[in-house]
Amino acid sequence: MAPLLTGVDLHKAFGRTRALRGAGLTVAAGEIVAVIGPSGSGKSTLLRCLAAIIAPDAGEVRLDGRRIDDLPDRTRTGLRRSEFGFVFPFGQLVPELPAAENVALPLLLAGAPRRRSLAAARDWLTRLGLPDAADRRPADLSGGEAQRVALARALIARPRVVFADEPTGALDSVAADQVMDLLVDAARAQRTGVVLVTHEPRVSAYADRTVLVRDGAA
């Protein structure tokens, strides 16, 4: 498989803390790679470097062979919106907006027409088993429902890569299985690469491959 996203020999320090010391990772289209390792080992920092949220001090990140780590801030922001989707453990939905609008956000930000974006959002919510959640706000959803809404939002713009940092962190095992089944099926169907950070072996077992991060190296 030709690599879709590659990080090579990444280094990142926060003051005296050397969070990454030569970490690397490769994801192919449609491939799910789990990142595991002890707390503080640098998993989230690795994910944020790969997703062009932060710039590494050294090393490089390539998407389709093109360097993305050294792009200017504004270009990186645009790239994240158009090419990447994100799922975090909780608190990522806009509390004022109903679920359908939350899901439609990536399309709206990309300038898609409102009516069509909301219709696509409703389709996604139905696909993820939440046909009745469209008009509810995040506060009126259970944790598992909110995570599925977040998943729909991460996938709706058909990103090249989904970055998921502890996507099941706040869920029980039944809700976690549901979220992971949906994520894996969607990633396979639309050939999305997935970088999945988790401390739960059950969740990492959904991945095609597991990468162990230890002391900032992988």
Binding site: D181, P201, R202, S204, A205, Y206, A207, T210
Partner: peptide, 17 residues
Amino acid sequence: QRVKHLDAMRELTAERR
């Protein structure tokens, strides 16, 4: 042992799916 356990879990998860 961790690698072996993780491999076993990956297979079981695929089997369950």
